[in-house]
Design a protein around this nucleic acid. Structure first.
Lengths: 248, 248
DNA sequence: TAGTGGTCTAGACCACTCC
DNA sequence: GAGTGGTCTAGACCACTAG
């Protein structure tokens, strides 16, 4: 049990101990743990501390807790993974290239049904007034990502005062509306004529398409379509074993 | 889903209160919160309760805590998202199609450098003995996913006794080694001749390629390459605002 | 209805870090 | 050095649910 790195607190050590018992297979899925009070005396801690341990293990998905029944080792699944969605500029910088952004088009208009489709949004009743942008992110001299974006002017009217040939809309929005939440759809598409041309690819080249819908509260802030050359880009999703029907 | 329901506990209500203050912009990033003891008296609770509140908000990424300095509203970023990586059979069933699996090839052999490359693995010194499988997942009568997989026979020797034309290797492994962890790489590729043929696609069709490396402890269990027709499949990643340098 | 987890408290000591 | 968060305790009551 030589643990080197983390702050060695009581409950941290207990958590690791129990987690190991589960991960290494000594406690199989379905195994019932002793009750809080007993585990507490066994580890020589107060019940509050033991509760903290078990609560955290439940949050992590390793155990399931049911009142009146007890605590059980959960059925594990490699089911959810954490996906890093980074700022494109940082992403390029991390690859050791110089980053630049070129604005191709900027237009104030009402969103058409075609726009909605292009941005992967289901049909909406109201066609809001938006700022419609298109531009390219470069890594060195190579196109790295084609961005098409609509910004909801009802929510972010200040966007009209911005000069997006200088500021990158994604970063600006991130700083302006910092607590937005987003939904991503990821798929593979063959680059169509104009997209391929802009990205300097042969027509039909496989691209990774990310559709991002950003909301704040119940209002949508921006829709973005990010198109990456398939060979130049990949997403890394780190594991995480998690139980079946668990929350966070 | 906005929940109105959940058990209204003291600290839950306080958490929501503070979270709202942050999300709605009353407390901007960088804003310093009052200290624990003061917030505790202000909300009329014990410090332990307030500590639980602030600890959870820090875990969620809304605030950053520094000893001796205090608690601050974090700089938020839509930076990580939770990506559901489901069992393929369940995935197909969820779409309302009947699911089936066809094994194309099963072979016990040493992994070659070509195999490693095909599975997206960097070069390894030892070329372990593996069970090398290839098969297709069907949704109805249509190919849904082409799977190429190597199973480490040192870790899972029982795989040799299985009949993978009947059992789906991914599901079987999930049940056998429930607490493994995985790493996923996601990218877009143009389907090459043989892959395209197996998936019943024109050559060059965009496909979503998922490379999955599964480990248990320090040993690798299985490498899998899952190739989905681009149009037929997409991944959904649900949001999650999170602070810059925070640990989940 | 009894046992389990869920929550809360009041007080205490410690470790770290900023001034 | 002093103030902050970090942790821990011993005891208490409550809510839910399985038997």
């Amino acid at each position: 049990m030589d643990s080197a790195r983390p702050t060695e607190t009581l409950h941290t050590k207990i958590i690791e101990d129990i987690r190991n018992k589960i991960v290494e297979g000594h406690w199989k899925p379905g195994h019932q743990l002793a009750k809080e009070t007993e585990l507490a005396t066994r580890y020589g801690v107060a019940r509050m501390t033991m509760n903290k341990v078990l609560t955290q293990l439940a949050q992590e998905g390793y155990v399931t807790r049911r009142k009146r029944s007890g605590t059980f080792v959960a059925q594990a699944r490699v089911q959810s993974a954490v996906l890093e969605i980074n700022n494109i500029g940082e992403e390029v910088a991390a690859l050791g290239h110089s980053y630049s952004w070129t604005l191709l088009n900027s237009e104030r208009r009402r969103m058409s049904q075609a726009d909605l489709r292009a941005l992967g949004v289901g049909r909406k009743v109201v066609e809001e007034e938006v700022l419609y942008l298109q531009g390219i992110h470069f890594a060195g001299n190579n196109p790295f990502c084609l961005e098409t974006r609509a910004i909801n002017l009802d929510v972010v009217p200040t966007a009209l005062q911005m000069n997006f040939s200088k500021d990158v809309p994604g970063s600006w929005l991130l700083n302006t509306m910092p607590w937005s939440t987003a939904r991503h759809q990821i798929r593979a598409v063959n680059a169509s004529g104009r997209d391929a041309q802009l990205l300097d690819l042969p027509t039909g080249a496989a691209c990774l398409e990310i559709l991002r819908k950003t909301k704040i509260g119940t209002n949508w802030v921006t829709y973005a379509r990010l198109l990456y050359p398939g060979e130049a880009h990949q997403l890394i999703a780190e594991f995480e074993p998690r139980a079946a029907g668990e929350a966070p």
